[in-house]
Nucleic acid binder design. Structure first.
Lengths: 99, 99
DNA sequence: CTGATGGTTAAGCACTTGCTTAAGTATCCA
DNA sequence: TGGATACTTAAGCAAGTGCTTAACCATCAG
């Protein structure tokens, strides 16, 4: 899933989708690459669970899957929390030592 | 930076570091790969800004850089926020429509 | 029906990544 | 001093990634 976010073009796509659903064409518009390339990025995003899409007529509409984003966010938050907790304990220890 | 977190071995290293500083040897211990491979992962983590390390004697000690982690977390949080804000507006609109 | 639109598939290619082994270098300890 | 410890560098390689072009399929509008 972080692998999906590792690519700049894909982050641009996620950014676009965070402002609302979009078609493949619309996702491709700000990107300087061929449509097949965009399709491949979209596939990566879908496989990571970050994006869901469905086709109506000849138009495929994509939308963000906030639950997946939250999961990624949570992992980082947890590691960071562990680290700051450690710092707090160290601080408390130094404080205690001072007395 | 997400590229740095994209690899499982590197996430294992970050996880270890979230529980406190560690030497290269300690980081390598849970990983089933050669030491040079670990060094290469460490280099990626340092270049991403997620980890800082310094060498004393013959031992290199690594520690997490929480600011970088927070930055990654923030980006995700922002995209997610944009999306949920959209949902809220939609909900408000539907509610209004109902009256 | 026919052309334009929106998407899809397949093949190929340059470049990057994630390892490996082999051969160092620089401490530290007895 | 001499061996063990803790990294470090360099070279090489198999697999994966991010594109491309060419060709194709399925709507939709006129």
């Amino acid at each position: 899933m972080y692998a999906a976010l590792a690519d700049g073009s894909r982050r641009t796509m996620v950014d676009r989708l965070s402002r609302g659903p979009a078609t493949v064409k619309q996702l491709a518009e700000p990107l300087t690459m061929s449509l097949p390339a965009v399709l491949q990025h979209l596939r990566v995003l879908e496989e990571s669970g970050l994006v869901r899409s469905e086709k109506v007529g000849r138009v495929r509409t994509c939308r963000l899957e906030p639950a997946a984003l939250q999961q990624a966010e949570q992992w980082i938050a947890d590691r960071r929390a562990g680290w700051t907790a450690r710092l707090d304990r160290l601080e408390a220890f130094l404080e205690e030592d001072e007395q």
